[in-house]
Amino acid sequence: MEKLSFRLTATRSAGGTRAQAMVGVVASGNLEVLLERSVPADTCTIDIATAAHGFDKVWDAVVRDFVARRSAGGLRISINDGGARPDTVALRLAQGVRKIEEPER
């Protein structure tokens, strides 16, 4: 298992009021993303545990693109990866910020 950690500055903070959200599942070519609202509003941390070693540069590009394009401030994001492709990772991250914005019932 390769572990990667990123701490990035986010210009937009995540919307909504939910404390946490969960998307995806750990399976071949898939990943789970847990989002928790527990860091300062201008920060986004992303911790990754991945079964595919040696892709740190790709992860770096994907998470930086995500934080630049989505409202990710204030989120502590934890990822368990089963070897997902970069487009799947980007999709799950986008689904995650959308889910934590959903109104609470």
């Binding site: 298992m1 946490q20 599942v25 789970e32 847990l34 079964a51 368990n80």
Partner: peptide, 21 residues
């Protein structure tokens, strides 16, 4: 015992397998 508690398997890491929260 939701995923935020990270109550994961104590065995999978021995086999270098991915865990789920």
């Amino acid at each position: 015992i939701g995923p935020e508690l990270r109550e994961i398997s104590p065995h999978l890491s021995i086999f270098d397998l991915p865990e789920q929260f």
